[in-house]
C-alpha cells in the first residue's frame, strides 16, 4: 500500500493547477524515489514531467510500485476541498480502484476524507535523452511569465536568442513586432531576481507562445525558472521545488 503525508496540501494543488490545462488523464507513478508523472499533450508538442520526491513526504510508505490513473479535472475538484495549509495524506492499496485523500487542519481538530475513483490509463512513455544544453538561463519566473503574456498579444511564436550579451525574446505578427532583451545580472540582496546565463555556444530557437504561456501557470511553484536550450532540440523549462520539480519540454518550430 501507499501512504504519503505532505505537510502542505497547497503544494499538490499548485502542481495540479500548473499542468491540468496541458494534460488530462495521467498516471501518478509511485516508487521509492517518490511520486512521478510524465505525460504529453494531445498534439505531442509538449511534455510535462513531474517528481515529488519521497523525502518531501513524512512518512512515505510504499510496499510495491503502483500507478494511480487519475483524471486531473476530478482530482482538482477534490483538492478544492483542501485548504492550502492542510496536511494532506494520500493512501492507496496495492492494486487500487480508488485513491484516498485525507485533509487535516494544523490544529488537528478537522479531518476530511475523500475517495477518488481511479482509471486505467495506457500511457506512452518518451525516452528523454540526457542532453548537454548549449545555453541555460535562470531568471525570475514572474518575469518569464510577463514576457510570454506580452509577446503573445503580437504573435503566436517567439524566437529566443541566447548569447553572451544576454537573452532576447522577439516576435513578429500582423500588427507589428516586439522584443525583450534581458542582460545577465546578479542581485546580491535578492538572488531569486537574478538573471544568469550559462552558455557554451549561441542558440536561436523558435517556439509556440501558446504552450509557453501555459507552462507559466507553474510560476506559483517557484520564483525562479530555468530555460535550457540547444539548437534543434526541444526546450526544457524547469520549475524546481524544495523536494521535486515540474519540467516542461516543448518541440521547436523549424524552418523548411
Amino acid at each position: 500500500m501507499l501512504e504519503a503525508r505532505l505537510e502542505q496540501a497547497g503544494v499538490l494543488k499548485k502542481v495540479v493547477d500548473a499542468i491540468r490545462d496541458l494534460v488530462q488523464d495521467i498516471n501518478f507513478d509511485c516508487n521509492d524515489s517518490g511520486i512521478a508523472l510524465q505525460a504529453m499533450d494531445n498534439s505531442h508538442v509538449a511534455l510535462v514531467s513531474m517528481l515529488l520526491k519521497s523525502e518531501g513526504f513524512s512518512p512515505y510508505r510504499l510496499d510495491r510500485n503502483i500507478a494511480l490513473g487519475i483524471n486531473l479535472t476530478s482530482l482538482t475538484k477534490v483538492l478544492r476541498c483542501a485548504q492550502n495549509e492542510d496536511i494532506l495524506t494520500l493512501k492507496a492499496e496495492d492494486t487500487p480502484d480508488t485513491l484516498s485523500l485525507i485533509f487535516e487542519n494544523a490544529e488537528n481538530d478537522r479531518i476530511s476524507e475523500y475517495e477518488l475513483k481511479l482509471m486505467d490509463i495506457d500511457q506512452e512513455h518518451l525516452g528523454i535523452p540526457e542532453t548537454e544544453y548549449a545555453a541555460a538561463i535562470s531568471m525570475p519566473s514572474a518575469e518569464f511569465q510577463r514576457i510570454c503574456r506580452d509577446l503573445i498579444q503580437l504573435s503566436d511564436s517567439v524566437t529566443i536568442e541566447a548569447s553572451k550579451e544576454g537573452v532576447k525574446f522577439s516576435c513578429s505578427g500582423d500588427i507589428g513586432s516586439g522584443s525583450v532583451t534581458l542582460r545577465q545580472q546578479n542581485n546580491v540582496d535578492k538572488p531569486d531576481l537574478s538573471t544568469k546565463i550559462e552558455l557554451t555556444e549561441p542558440v536561436t530557437l523558435t517556439f509556440s507562445l501558446k504552450y509557453l504561456v501555459n507552462f507559466c501557470k507553474a510560476s506559483a511553484l517557484s520564483s525562479v525558472v530555468t530555460l535550457s536550450l540547444s539548437n534543434e532540440v526541444p526546450l526544457l523549462v524547469e520549475y524546481a521545488m524544495g523536494s521535486g520539480f515540474v519540467r516542461f519540454y516543448l518541440a521547436p518550430k523549424i524552418g523548411e
Binding site: 504529453m40 508538442v45 526541444p234 519540454y249 524552418g255
Partner: peptide
C-alpha cells in the same frame, strides 16, 4: 515560414 515539430522527432517513444 517555420512549422511546428513534435516531440517524437527528438525523443524515442518506448
Amino acid at each position: 515560414v517555420k512549422s511546428q515539430t513534435t516531440l517524437g522527432r527528438f525523443f524515442n517513444l518506448s
